[in-house]
């Protein structure tokens, strides 16, 4: 009897492997989205100069104090344009601080971009050579990070923000982090 069951073993192994490969397809998991290894680590303490004259840049102390979103963007980046209206709405409808980091951009182009599309950010730092972004583990703009009050990275969203990602993942997490702090 045991011998007979042994014949089912290859089938069982096949089922396990097939399941392993099928689950990501069924759950529509995008294999290009990489998990961040920076989660729960302190945000890199860069001192990024301001993009605008009347708005501060992003120093290490700017990332502490309250829960906030840090958004890497560039005027040359198409998906950034796609997500921009969502950032504008976020700025208008909530009091969640938005920190912008302008990634490998030309200053003039970035200024025109903000003038045309609006500026949702409370402060904008310039990462001209992309070194700060590399320390954050950015591998393609736009990327958006949830940073908690102690300056630790809690979540990363790769690609343009969507209303769904905000509603289902990011904003609940922000609320949770705020509650944990209070």
């Amino acid at each position: 009897m045991l011998n007979r069951l042994l014949f089912l073993l290859p089938l069982l192994i096949f089922a396990v492997i097939a399941g392993y490969f099928t689950v990501p397809i069924l759950t529509k998991k995008d294999p290009h989205l990489l998990p961040s290894v920076m989660i729960d680590k302190p945000a890199p303490p860069h001192d990024l100069g301001p993009l605008l004259e009347d708005k501060p840049g992003v120093g290490p102390e700017a990332l502490r104090g309250e829960v906030k979103l840090v958004n890497f963007f560039a005027s040359w980046c198409g998906p950034c344009r796609v997500e921009h209206p969502i950032l504008m709405r976020l700025a208008a409808e909530t009091d969640l601080p938005l920190v912008g980091i302008n990634y490998k951009d030309q200053r003039d182009a970035a200024l025109v971009w903000l003038r045309e599309l609006g500026d949702p950010f409370g402060r904008i730092g310039v990462d001209g050579d992309g070194r700060a972004a590399i320390d954050w583990g950015v591998y393609g703009v736009p990327e958006t990070y949830v940073v908690d009050a102690s300056g630790h990275i809690r979540y990363r969203h790769v690609g343009p923000l969507t209303a769904q990602a905000l509603k289902e993942t990011i904003l609940p997490m922000v609320e949770q982090l705020k509650a944990a702090k209070g």
Binding site: L34, P35, S36, V37, M38, I134, D135, W136, G137, Y139
Partner: peptide, 8 residues
């Protein structure tokens, strides 16, 4: 590199 981007 691994500290920033993981083993990947």
């Amino acid at each position: 590199l691994v500290e920033r981007y993981g083993d990947f």
